[in-house]
């Protein structure tokens, strides 16, 4: 290889990605949500896990989530090149080739599932494998470009981590872990649609059927309210199970009250009103949705911590 060819390759950027480019393939921001919710699922479970096994399990769950992110970027490279928001991702930026992303994602998927099976148990590994399959095949390859309900069904992939964390501790599935799944599942649509209302995205150019494009903004506003109404009883009902308690219930009451009010405000508005104030209510609901999710899982964690360390004072749970 001559110096000239190396220079040309360096300018093109392909084939010699840095460590950070591979890390970016794992969608680190999504991974942080996966780590947090999986950790809550693990700690809220009624079985204590050895810290080393718990740490390794969370790491492999995060790795599995990251691997599915890499596979998503491999499959979606064509639309990532079109949309401004995703043009700087490693594949459209020309730093990593599609083949490299596929190999990287497939290898890490297999590694994470096998290692979680060895570190924790087969049930946790099976749910992780199903999560990767669901996100990559069901959501990315099938639903995303086919139906405007893609966010709803695809949200299930993001909802599995607390179930996996719970399965690491207990070796199974229970009402509590299913409720944690349902909480994220029902939260995802209003969270994303609030974002879709104020982000003038180029999904249309990429031919991705988003609800705002296919059914209009009026229908999206109605959908947000419907999902928020369905979410509230699930969030409050979780408070009466083993992972709930007075702290959780107070947090859930406040956050669901605020979330419902925000969704109602959005539903009442039309586009003219929204544009007049720069989509203030929509942006507010999106920010609140983040607090909502972290608040609920933080409260579940608080109940579990109180039950662990404050049991002699009658704290934690019911």
């Amino acid at each position: 290889m001559t110096d000239t060819s190396i220079n040309n390759q360096a300018r093109a950027g392909a084939g010699d990605a840095g460590f950070g480019d591979y890390f970016a393939l794992l969608k680190p921001r999504v991974m942080s949500l996966v780590v947090f919710t999986a950790l809550v699922g693990l700690l809220a479970a009624p079985v204590n896990v050895h810290p080393v096994i718990g740490f390794a399990s969370i790491l492999f769950i995060a790795l599995g989530g990251g691997a599915s992110g890499a596979l998503n970027m491999w499959w979606d490279a064509d639309i990532d090149r079109i949309m401004k928001r995703t043009q700087s991702r490693p594949i459209p930026a020309g730093k990593i080739t599609e083949g490299e992303a596929l190999a990287f994602g497939a290898f890490l998927s297999a590694l994470s599932v096998v290692m979680l099976g060895l570190a924790a148990n087969l049930v946790a590994a099976a749910i992780l494998a199903f999560t990767i399959f669901f996100y990559v095949v069901v959501y990315t390859m099938w639903l995303k470009r086919w139906t405007p309900q893609n966010i709803v069904i695809g949200g299930a992939a993001g909802a599995f981590p607390p179930m996996i964390g719970w399965a690491v501790a207990t070796g199974g599935i229970s009402v509590e872990s299913v409720l944690m799944f349902t909480l994220i599942f029902m939260w995802t649509p209003p969270h994303f649609w609030a974002l879709a209302l104020f982000m003038k995205s180029d999904y249309h150019e990429a031919r991705v059927p988003m609800l705002t494009v296919t059914h209009g903004r009026r229908a999206t506003r109605a959908h947000i309210l419907i999902y928020t109404l369905l979410l509230a009883p699930i969030a409050l009902g979780t408070g009466f199970t083993a992972i709930g308690g007075p702290v959780y219930l107070v947090v859930a009451l406040v956050l669901n009250g605020l979330f419902l009010k925000g969704a109602f405000d959005i539903w009442r508005r039309d586009e003219a009103q929204a544009e007049a104030d720069g989509y203030r209510a929509e942006k507010k609901l999106f920010a609140l949705s983040l607090v909502y999710l972290f608040g609920h899982f933080g409260a579940i964690l608080a109940e579990s911590t109180l039950a662990q360390f404050g049991a002699q004072f009658g704290l934690g749970g019911w």
Binding site: I6, N7, Q9, A10, D16, A17, G18, F19, G20
Partner: peptide, 10 residues
């Protein structure tokens, strides 16, 4: 060359 720095980092 910058390329070598990137490779070293990786």
């Amino acid at each position: 060359h910058e390329l070598h720095k990137r490779r070293l980092g990786r």
